[in-house]
Simulated scan of single mutants.
Amino acid sequence: MSEAIRIVVIAPDLDLIDPDDAHAREQAERSRSLRIGLLESGFNLVASLPSDVFLTERLAQLRPDLIIVDAESDARDALEHVVMATRDARRPIVMFTNDHDSGNARAAVAAGVTAYIVAGLQSDRIRPILDVAMARFQHEQALRQELADARSELNELSASVKERKVIDRAKALLMERQKLSEPDAYARLRKAAMDKNLKMVEVAQRMLDVADLLG
């Protein structure tokens, strides 16, 4: 499964790093190590992109299966760009960083990061980390779909109950004013709906509206 995963890495452009900046050189080395580790592990590294305003369009074109954020000092800015870029097309996001602040880790997970990995660039760790991240993301997506389906069923049930109440009120009105039995009142509503090519609840609601208007 891992070999088929299309990965995009979000990281600073290595060609623009100041060679006199020791911290920038260290981060560049981390980025190179990560990319080498991905290739050595057999993953399909389709692109390395900066976290800029064009990220949404680029991700839409590349359609990666997984996104890796490789950032440190600008981790929050990079993460915000990635989260916004994947808002309408959710994808697993794995963040590699040297930031040991647990508060930042919690904030990243709350923002949508699937896995927050601190100092985890050893080649033999990359494959299991990404495989677990993919599995976790798929599990979470399945749970979200189950929740959405449950909400949809609940909404349908609620709507059905409301419709039944409207029809029952209209039946009671017919039974009272035209001295009909319940089956006859139901049959009268059903025939009116068929004749007018409307739903029974629509006919019932119109009848109630007229009754309210006339008193």
Rank of each mutant, 00 (worst) to 15 (best):
K191H: 14
D195I: 06
S181F: 07
M200P: 01
A192P: 05
L173K: 08
A185N: 03
D209I: 01
V166Y: 07
L180R: 06
L180V: 07
A193Q: 05
K165R: 13
L189V: 07
P183N: 06
V210K: 03
Q205A: 13
Q178M: 15
A204W: 05
L208K: 02
A170K: 02
R177L: 11
A204K: 00
Y186H: 15
M200K: 02
D195K: 06
K199A: 10
A193L: 04
D168L: 14
A170V: 04
V201S: 10
M194L: 14
K196H: 11
A172E: 11
A192R: 00
M207T: 03
K179S: 13
M207K: 00
L198S: 08
I167G: 03
M200W: 05
V203R: 02
V201M: 06
A172F: 07
D168W: 09
E182F: 12
N197K: 10
K171S: 09
E182R: 14
L180I: 04
V203I: 05
D195L: 09
L173H: 14
D209C: 05
I167E: 01
K196P: 04
R169H: 13
S181T: 15
K199L: 08
D195A: 08
M200N: 05
M194D: 15
E202H: 02
D168I: 11
I167S: 01
A193V: 05
M175A: 12
I167H: 00
R206K: 12
L198K: 09
D184C: 05
R164T: 15
P183D: 08
L174E: 01
R177P: 10
A187N: 13
A185M: 04
K191Y: 12
M175S: 08
D209V: 06
D184E: 13
E182Q: 11
L208Y: 04
L208M: 02
A172C: 09
V166C: 07
N197Q: 13
L173R: 06
E182M: 13
M207G: 00
A193H: 07
E176W: 10
D195P: 03
A170N: 05
K196E: 10
M200C: 03
L198N: 06
M175Q: 13
M200R: 06
Y186C: 10
A187G: 12
R164H: 15
R206H: 12
S181P: 04
E182S: 13
S181H: 08
E202N: 03
L180Q: 07
L198Q: 12
L180G: 06
L198T: 04
I167C: 03
L189F: 02
V201T: 08
V210M: 08
R177A: 10
V203N: 01
R190V: 03
R188M: 09
L174H: 04
R177I: 12
R206I: 04
L173P: 06
I167R: 04
R177C: 09
L189Y: 02
M200V: 08
E182Y: 12
L180D: 00
S181K: 10
M207P: 05
L208I: 00
A192V: 01
V203E: 01
K196D: 09
V210Q: 02
D195C: 06
D184K: 09
